[in-house]
Structure formats: structure tokens, C-alpha cells
Amino acid sequence: MPKRKGRPVLHAATVLVLLTGSAFLTFELRKDEEAKVPAVQAVTDRPDLENSGKATGKQTWERLNNPTRSVLRGENGDILATFTDGARTATLRGPSRTFTEPANTQSRVVTQDWVRLMPEAWRKGAEKEKWFKDWFKEFYGSEADDIFAIAFQYVDGAPVKKDDEGVPYAGDAVFGPFKDDGVDRLEQNDFYDYLGINYTFRDGSTMQARKERYRALDCSGFMRMIWGYRARYPLMASNTSGDGLPRSADGMARSKVGVDILKLSGPAPWYTRPKNIDVVQPGDLLFFKMDHRTGNHLDHVALYLGVDTDGHRVFISSRKEVNGPTMGDKGGASRIDGNGFYAGLLRSAKRL
């Protein structure tokens, strides 16, 4: 009796079905895995993202979380720029610079970060929009004064710079004049006091410069000078009048402007020190709770510079102990890592 030949055919058909099913399953799994990978957009050789040949080679956009942001990477994977959703602050990679203050600290910040203010807040896909392409083409690789350069134009010994009307808009600033006790210094010294001119805000209110506070900037006044008067970020006349960056450190920390990077948490009035400070990037505003006399208010604000050559996270702020802007150690090291005075009193951070 001849052997039946149906089984090999059936076996072949079964294998074919299994292989087909396996291929389909593999394809579905691959699609599922690809769906989990952040979208990357190649912008290789796009002239609208180049600046005088300084942004050459393959570049890719990548979306990241915590906080939600877009980063531009170079062909070797290095981050060339960072843009955070809801913030106008951009951190661009550029020529290396060194920031020091030998009179008050041995700390040295050597950085390739250039912090700039974009004309609009970042949003997903903004890299395709004309306003951004024009802005990026102008400022990527530019050595025009950025936020850091502006900040150091007010430290001890900084030379005076005047505008076309002869108003000194930069130069060595003090924190404020002494109080009657001759020990403590007066606060509430804003940028218009430093300038010595009356200033009308966008809401129509005019603030009068006080002669005795000429060339003075308290901690929040220093930030308002840098970001507002110089970089043109909108400013409020007070903590409640108008829109933009509020007058005080507490007002800034609690305002809706920008993006909260380290959120204020814990019970008042001292709140809780943030556990993870790795999410802070150069250009962020740092807020501290230092004085029991101010109740629930946060009472100091600083500008984060980045990591110094000793591996510490360093900031610059206007302080009473030095009588002006400093990244120094007098009154406490200007660091947010470790267990120092300011590190222990850090409470929140914001990206404008």
C-alpha cells in the first residue's frame, strides 16, 4: 500500500502559518517598542538651523521628560541646546568661558552654557516655526552678552557701562545702604533704584527711584535687572500689580510665570529641602527660606550657574554680607549641594 504524502504538505503548511504568525508577532512587538521610544527628528544639513558654519553636521531633536523639554543633539550625541516647554529660557552650547570671583571664593565655573531668553515660550514642535528658526540662527554660536555675562557686570569691581542717554546701566552694584543701626542693610532695592531713574511699568504704574539707594540691588532686584531691564522679560510693578516677574523672591517663587523645576513642598514656614537637585540647569532661579522673621515667605533668590571645577553646584546672588552680587563664600558658600548654609535652605527652583 503506497505511503500517504499528505503529512509533509500539512507539516509545511503548519510551519508556514507559524512563521507567518511569528513574523506578525515580531512586527507588532517591534511597533510597540518603537512607540515607547521618544520621537527623534533629523535636521541634517538644514541651513535654517546653522549659524556661520558653527552648527554643522548631523543634528537630531529629542523629546525628554521631567521637565518636558526638547534637546538638540550633535552628531556625536552631545546636547547642543535645551528648550523647556512653557519656558522662554534656552541653554545653548557655545565657546567655553570661566567665571571667577577671587576676592571672595576659590570657586571657578568653566562652562560652555550660554543662557538666553527666547521671544516666545517653548512648545513641542516649535523648532519648525519661523520665529524660532530666525532666533536660533541669530544666537546659536553668538558671543553677544547672555544672562551670565549680564549678571557678572554687577559684581565687585565691574566697570560702569552707560547707555546713549548717559544712564549707567551696569557696573559694581551694592546690596543696599545701612539701616539706622549701622549693621543691617536696607532691602527693597530694585533696578530703577540702581539706575536712578523713575520707571513706568506695563500696567501704567510709575515707581520713583530713591537717591539713597542709587546703585543698589537686593537679591530680587538683581534678578529683575538681569532678566527684566536687560533681557526684557516682562516685569510686575509689585507682587500683585500687572503681569510678568514679581517684585520679591517669594512672589517670583509662587508666581505662574515660567516652569517650576523644583516645587515648593513640606509644611510652612520652613518647608522641605528638595531631594533631587539634578534636574536644575544653568539659568534657573533658586529660592531659599532663610529668615524666621519673614513668616511663610521665601526670602532669597539666586541664579544657578552650574557645576564648578570642584564638582559643586554654584550660584550667584546679591547678598548683604558682601554688599552686592557675588558667587562667593562670605555668609555661606554659594552652593546648593552638600550640607552648607545655602544648600540646607534651598526650597524651590523655577525656569523662566
Rank of each mutant, 00 (worst) to 15 (best):
N339G: 15
F288G: 07
M118S: 14
I261N: 11
A126P: 02
E127K: 00
M236Q: 14
V17H: 02
R63I: 14
A237R: 15
E75V: 04
L298C: 01
S248K: 04
V110P: 02
Y304S: 04
A237F: 12
Q41C: 04
F148N: 11
T91L: 12
R247Y: 14
K58W: 00
D250K: 04
R93T: 09
A35D: 06
P95F: 11
L72E: 05
G266D: 06
L16N: 02
Y229S: 12
S265T: 14
N65M: 14
R247G: 06
L346I: 03
T20E: 14
E75Y: 02
D145K: 14
M290V: 09
G283W: 14
G266A: 10
K137W: 03
G228H: 00
P2C: 00
Y199E: 07
I150C: 09
P47C: 00
N296Q: 03
N51C: 06
E33A: 09
V109Y: 01
H292I: 13
D164A: 14
A81N: 10
V160W: 04
N239H: 05
L346W: 01
G166E: 14
D78G: 09
T82A: 10
I226N: 03
F136V: 06
I150T: 15
R213G: 08
I79L: 04
A333R: 09
L49D: 07
R108H: 12
V15E: 08
T240L: 13
Q112Y: 10
E50G: 04
R4L: 13
F83S: 00
A231M: 13
R93K: 12
I316F: 12
P38S: 07
K36H: 13
V259E: 10
G266K: 11
V37D: 03
P47R: 03
V115N: 02
S52G: 11
D193Q: 07
V115Y: 00
G166S: 05
H11D: 15
W270F: 07
D250V: 05
A231N: 11
Y271F: 14
G94R: 05
N339V: 15
P8I: 10
I79F: 07
G86H: 04
